[in-house]
Write a protein that binds this DNA or RNA. Structure first.
Lengths: 191, 191
DNA sequence: GATTAAATCGAGGGTGCCCTCGATTTACGG
DNA sequence: CCGTAAATCGAGGGCACCCTCGATTTAATC
């Protein structure tokens, strides 16, 4: 299902400028940036913006699947780690480091995403990887047996808020918080 | 500094109705409820609302110090616990149970409160109690030595988000999350 | 270069929230 | 009862955001 006609040259250029502007602004200020700001930074009128991306979800769908794919790579690396616990914890740190770098990513994982279909799909795939990491770490007897995927979701909520509140004033605070939490996940503390 | 003149009867009645409406709506929907909604629920015009409470902070100042005082009682109880660790953990559970019951309380502790002076003051007093609980639990050798008041603030951020996201769909999820975190705070896991 | 469909522009309509203020109503003391 | 200060009312101004649409400009094609 290739686009029916190729885009005109100026249109293609503007589309890229819009995408770049949106990517940057989402990253800096989160998903609530007004459409007008995106248009202004792209040096394009608001009408043109809507011609390309009729809704904010259209932006999300164009931007975030790529970002989430980057997390897949992280998942691969973690799964390749010979020590399942080390791999699991490394994944958490890498995941939340991305949150800290990209306010928009943080937002999109924190709120329950409406139905940005492409985004949802990427999340499901990511969740699969995480489930595997969890299982491996449990089987190796290092992660407490009652830790579930649901707990992972909850942790994501928690971390997203911690990062939002602290990343500017105390950029390492979230690592500290995560370390406390992770300490409680060792099997010795389990049931 | 008693009010210069006593309120007229209708004014006093309306003030109470406004306070009741605001308390209820803040509790249900958080601090972002529009002023218009409060006025409507109080069966009072928007103009009257502003006559009594010229700003949202005025509402906060009238409502939350009382709520936060309730937390003081909790602090007292915790400090009276013969087991410092048990007291500390009990305080956390009680504190966040309040968050779960009162969306407005959750909001006001999650965001850095602008400068609702009366609210700020109550928070400082509460923080004092918490610091004491932390010290006691450290001295008894049960709480890891590197846990600080700052970590307590961070935990509050985390819990506020977890509660917001889960309290309706999974009312016990926050307890579970807290339990994992608290497990990591035992001195055995410390430095 | 003329033709034409594609793309751009930005004023402006709609919504929801904040808050004000002059006109009106109401409580209360004499 | 009456006079008056106190209290109430709600239309409406201001602002920020969403999005649309008819007029205009521009790129591509012959």
């Amino acid at each position: 299902m290739a686009s029916s006609r190729p885009l005109r040259a100026d249109a293609a250029r503007n589309r890229e400028k819009l995408l770049a502007a949106a990517t940057q602004l989402f990253g800096e200020r989160g998903l609530d940036v007004p459409m007008e700001h995106i248009a202004r930074r792209a040096e394009v009128s608001i009408g043109t913006l809507y011609a390309h991306f009729p809704t904010k979800e259209a932006f999300f769908g164009a931007i975030f699947p790529e970002r989430l794919a980057a997390l897949d790579a992280l998942g691969e690396k973690a799964r390749a780690d010979p020590d399942p616990w080390h791999g699991f914890v490394g994944y958490l740190e890498g995941l939340f480091a991305q949150h800290a770098k990209d306010r928009g990513l943080n937002d999109i994982l924190a709120r329950q995403v409406p139905q940005a279909s492409a985004v949802i799909e990427s999340c499901h795939r990511g969740a699969g990887h995480v489930a595997e990491l969890i299982d491996r770490a449990k089987l190796s007897g290092q992660l407490r047996a009652d830790f579930t995927m649901t707990d992972m979701t909850t942790l994501t909520w928690a971390m997203s808020q911690v990062i939002r509140e602290s990343v500017d004033s105390a950029p390492d605070e979230w690592r500290r918080f995560l370390a406390f939490y992770v300490a409680g996940l060792r099997a010795e503390n389990g049931p």
